[in-house]
Nucleic acid binder design. Structure first.
Lengths: 262, 262
DNA sequence: CGCCTTCTTGAGATGACTCAATGGTGGTGG
DNA sequence: CCACCACCATTGAGTCATCTCAAGAAGGCG
């Protein structure tokens, strides 16, 4: 029963009951989860939602610090995140991690339309997590049958690419402060869009460790800490365990120096 | 007749004859360009190729240092690069550029399946360039009509995303030397795959300035230069104007520290 | 109560940047 | 054909941001 945080949740695409446990009494409709209107199926009409629901393989629970999948795993499944936070990252050859994106409830992760592909990144549960699993092949087929859906999935992918390019810009051109400000703002915005946090809230849940925040921003945990303290010193925010409070959203936004598109 | 290098080639998606001149006597079939089997239409069967050719709006020539499109331009057209090199980049709010990717002959650029989207990045001609233009809408429609094609376009996008994620990894976790080595190796490999350079060639054309190489790797032009000199000092490569010679491919690869997937 | 993870802080090293000046090279016009 | 000019590469000196190593403090959990 290795809950060492490194155990594989999926092995070659097969569900591994070690850390990924099926929820047999599915209480809620999955694809039509409360967040749907704002998230994965953001752009997808109800008829697809119902069909997608039919394709669902199962709903699973994954404890904090376990992996949903690893980089080299064959990408057999895609998931919608029902509850909890995931961090998607890619590892360097020396073992250090570079965060790619944080997935919040409603996000769609692991979809890879390439034939015989690996995921290419790992997905780590930051908190306890609930996901709905779909077979990639079912998704492909469904997208193939209906080109409107196919087009909408293409849009999701295009958005992911533009986000990734924004990250390249940050890592290549921005200071540590700016990168941290940007990540925090992005998360804050996303939480509000999904109504996981009130629109006028000044503080938000924040289960990422400072080390993870550093992984996302290309920084050392030590330096991440110093930057957070500096931002606190400037009255911009307060980072506590499991929670972040943003005092001055406008100044933080200005500091982040984001153009359009966040 | 502003050939100042900053002139817009396209204005709101309309071809601007200032720098982008149509080639009226189209001598070669475009979509079926000599490189096709290895590039854009890598995975696309001949029947689509013929259809794509029918959709071609025109073939254009763009002089070196001009833009094919800017970041804020409405993404009305997509292009296949017929000859020459393009650099795709995104600008920081302070005006500095972060390179995203170099496009070589055969590459597909500017495709954006999002509705009413901007390109989100700019495309700059590194050399004189010839492109074939397509309307995004025609492409969408064609992909919609045939889901096999749609799926294949999705694969191209997925590949782009994985490349971009690799770039995030480089910028976040690797040293200047490693990033430069990686970019050079990637270009070398791509040129060989497309048979623009002999498979056993030790040197390759390299029209990028050191400044552009710095833009791609998140480095200052000055530091880029120092790194190149250092690599030369170690007998790994020789960077001249317009050309790079790689002496020790294996050691360079090892230095770059790329895992799988380049 | 004690362990383990996370956060905090210090001191010193270093990779990359800035500013500044010089030298090449190819193109252009007289 | 030559002289000039623009762009690019090169080099130096000094600074700054970020990293490394190391140690200690603060919670949470069994």
């Amino acid at each position: 029963l290795p809950v060492d945080g490194t155990g594989s949740a999926l092995e070659a695409g097969v569900v591994h009951q070690t850390s990924l446990s099926e929820i047999r009494s599915t209480p809620t409709r999955c694809a039509a989860c409360p967040i749907r209107a704002k998230a994965l199926f953001q752009v997808i009409a109800d008829e697809y939602l119902r069909e997608a629901e039919g394709l669902r393989v199962g709903q699973y629970r994954l404890p904090s610090r376990n992996h949903l999948y690893h980089e080299r795993d064959a990408a057999a499944m895609a998931y919608t995140l029902f509850s909890g936070w995931l961090m998607l990252y890619r590892s360097d050859s020396d073992g250090s991690r570079q965060g790619l994106r944080v997935a919040l409830p409603g996000d769609f992760v692991g979809y890879t339309p390439m034939a015989r592909a690996n995921y290419g990144h790992a997905a780590l549960a930051v908190t306890d997590v609930t996901v709905c699993a779909f077979r990639q092949s079912d998704f492909h087929e469904m997208a193939g049958r209906d080109h409107v859906l196919g087009r909408e999935i293409a849009e999701i992918q295009a958005r992911d690419l533009q986000r990734c390019e924004g990250m390249v810009l940050d890592l290549g051109r921005k200071s540590a402060e700016q990168r941290i400000a940007h990540v925090l703002l992005e998360l804050c915005l996303k939480l509000k869009q999904r109504e996981l946090v009130a629109d006028d809230a000044t503080s938000m849940p924040f289960p990422l460790t400072q080390e993870m925040l550093g992984e996302l921003t290309g920084l050392t945990p030590v330096h991440t800490n110093r930057v957070l303290r500096k931002l606190r010193g400037e009255g911009l925010l307060l980072a506590e365990r499991q929670r972040i409070e943003i005092f001055d959203l406008d100044r933080l936004t200005e500091l982040a120096g984001v153009g359009t598109g966040l």
